[in-house]
Design a protein around this nucleic acid. Structure first.
Lengths: 159, 159
DNA sequence: GTTGATATTGGAAAATAATGGATTATAATG
DNA sequence: CATTATAATCCATTATTTTCCAATATCAAC
């Protein structure tokens, strides 16, 4: 059975929380219990990963202190992951609270309609309109690829 | 005996479910029991595959977490397969529920007439009008290919 | 510190949607 | 035409989501 798959709509409640679907909850429980890492993506969505996945994502960085003294690019990299990531706990009722700092940054204020999107290694929370744009972009790209493939198939030298 | 072949018409019931034909059901039971993977295609149809077929299609990348932290292209790839795929179970009455997120995306709302199409490795569910267009597109492409083949055959250097 | 205002947390109740089964209708078969 | 098989509809049950409320914590001004 596929983990972290599919997508569901829901609304951020008056207190900035999201009720995750049972499917998503059990995927997390299985992988990492109730503790997850929240990470703001540059695309403008909020990613939820099991901690080990997040740490794998970050493990490339060797000698962070030494490199931080030398490189602004590296310092920015550490800021990006430091400031924009945070551990949170899934509550007994299956809700997760979005930290206030992240809310404004991502336009995920109370009352916002969002889509919880499976991405195989975790889930992402998208403001609904942004998600529609994103999925359209993805599909459009695939369709264009398909058109080219069909045109290619008509070329005599290919057959 | 051919598996996943032919095509049948049916209607999506009031609760967003499809009753599969006995032929399709027994093809799945034989291949994978009652658990199948649903996947939204960019053409606008919903594919049903046995899980092993899906996983083959989605040959797993190495180090997904590391790459996800670095590349937006890679994250999009995971979104495409994560968000647009989901495991489901064929019920004892031979019905399959289309997840709500997929319904809207593919225009497969309750009451819609659909065509369940065998595609050799699984089946696809098409909104009936889109299916007619698709089959016409396929035939048109093949006719054009035939024309080119005939023209090619007239070229002196080919003979 | 103390008080008042504001925000956060946890839980319960109400509203909504999904599920499974049985029944009825329709189509296929002999 | 009768019988069987299949598909569609309906309904009760269960699950899930949303809304609401009380309790607790946090912050700011006095």
């Amino acid at each position: 059975m596929l983990a972290f798959s599919g997508h569901d709509l829901c609304t951020i409640d008056a207190n900035g929380r999201i009720k995750l679907s049972p499917r998503v909850i059990s995927d997390f429980i299985e992988k990492c219990g109730d503790e997850v890492v929240l990470h703001c993506l540059p695309e403008g969505a909020l990613a939820l990963y099991p901690e080990d996945i997040y740490l794998e994502m970050r493990r490339r960085e060797t000698d962070p202190a030494g490199r931080a003294g030398q490189s602004v690019v590296f310092r920015r990299e550490m800021r990006r992951f430091g400031a924009l990531s945070q551990s949170e706990r899934i509550s007994k009722q299956g809700r997760i609270t979005i930290p206030t700092g992240f809310r404004k940054l991502l336009n995920l204020d109370p009352g916002t309609d969002v889509c919880v999107v499976g991405v195989e290694i975790g889930v992402e929370i998208w403001q609904i309109d942004k998600w529609r744009e994103e999925i359209e972009r993805i599909n459009q790209h695939q369709r264009e690829k398909g058109e080219r493939e069909m045109a290619e198939d008509l070329m005599p030298e290919k057959n």
